[in-house]
């Protein structure tokens, strides 16, 4: 089972791949659109990559509600336990 720290590291790495922001510079309070520059399509791609990476079932409604890095981490925790 993946540890919480490994989960968080992987989420930061995926975010970094999409945004070109170094993982260490990504803060929990960063907003996906305003701070990390992802548009709505990019945000959905991010959630999709996360769902595939961790093989979790995310519904679109749930994905659409994620607005910041903290929300992303919370979603991963919810599904991975």
């Amino acid at each position: 089972m993946i540890t919480p720290q490994a989960q968080e590291d992987r989420v930061r790495q995926i975010l970094s791949d999409l945004t070109n922001v170094p993982p260490a510079d990504i803060r929990a309070g960063d907003r996906l659109r305003e701070d990390l520059g992802l548009d709505s399509v990019g945000s959905m791609e991010l959630l999709s990559m996360l769902a595939e990476e961790f093989d979790i079932d995310v519904e679109m409604e749930e994905a659409a509600a994620v607005a910041d890095v903290a929300g992303l981490m919370a979603l991963a925790r919810r599904h991975l336990g």
Binding site: M44, S48, M49, A51, E52, D57, V58, E59, M60, A63
Partner: peptide, 10 residues
Amino acid sequence: KRTNVIPLRS
């Protein structure tokens, strides 16, 4: 490879 597949997965 890089696209939103959440609706397909669901």
